[in-house]
Amino acid sequence: MPNDPLGEIVVIGAGGHAKVVIECLRHAGWNVIGCTDADPTPRSCAGVPVIGTDDALGRLRSEGVANAFCALGANRLRERVGGKLQDLGFALPSYQGPGAIVSSTVRIGAGVAIMPGAVINIDTVIGDFAIINTNANVDHDGVLGRAVHVGPGAALAGEVVVGDRSFIATGCAVIPQRRIGADTIVGAGSVVVRDLPSGVIAFGNPARVQREL
């Protein structure tokens, strides 16, 4: 059952990721009043109206809407828009979707999406605007930077470090104590057994650098 009402919140984005975010926010007890999107065509997203482009955010803040959530899938864009929201004075709550299990010792930044069924274990640090997607697992003492995305079903073993804006795609496995640099993409189903540098695409079993970004 949803928690007690937490207040009004606006969601930035109106795509597939935003649909899941809206459902999770509602479950957590938020009243999602609308979405903004680059395409302002009147429509709904998960039953929530698209109320304009991001140009509407300043007006919404001045009208007393205090909370916002950036539901954009692209890591760099999510980080940039999240920073804009902070500059406008919005609070950026994080949430846990239904069935997520998060240790009380985990340190969670602003605007973090923890999707249904995710598991985050003891003494892990999650940076601002990160996404821990459906049924993903982050084991003990992990460190995930700003705007990281751990894809559905991915599993990070203990003491894994992931740099800012990196994407660990669906079904990846990372063995303990590996380090993945910033702005790196690890392709779906890959197995990371060695450290990966920043700014590369890597995939395979074992994951190997394929090219620089």
Rank of each mutant, 00 (worst) to 15 (best):
C35H: 04
G15P: 05
V200P: 08
I131K: 02
N135A: 15
P93G: 14
I22E: 03
R107H: 14
N75L: 09
L88S: 06
R26P: 03
R165Y: 01
D55E: 15
F129I: 02
R26N: 13
H27M: 09
C35W: 06
G99F: 13
L156H: 03
A14P: 13
P176S: 12
P42F: 01
D87C: 00
I101H: 09
D123T: 00
T41M: 09
A155V: 15
N121Q: 15
S104E: 14
V162D: 09
R76H: 13
G111L: 06
G158K: 13
P5Y: 02
V160Y: 13
T105M: 05
M1S: 14
I51S: 07
S190C: 10
A14T: 07
V102N: 04
I51H: 05
R80Y: 04
V11L: 11
R78L: 11
R43Q: 11
P176F: 01
T105S: 15
G16H: 03
G163L: 11
G109S: 08
C45I: 11
A207H: 12
D128M: 01
L144H: 09
E63R: 15
V119W: 00
R194N: 15
V138Y: 02
A110I: 00
T36V: 15
V161I: 13
G117L: 06
D164Q: 01
L92G: 09
L60F: 02
A110G: 06
G73R: 07
V209E: 10
D128Q: 04
Q86I: 11
F90Q: 07
R146F: 00
G151A: 12
A136W: 05
S44Y: 00
T124D: 06
L85Y: 07
E79C: 05
Q177P: 00
N133T: 11
G47E: 00
R80E: 14
F203R: 12
V50E: 09
N3Y: 12
P98W: 06
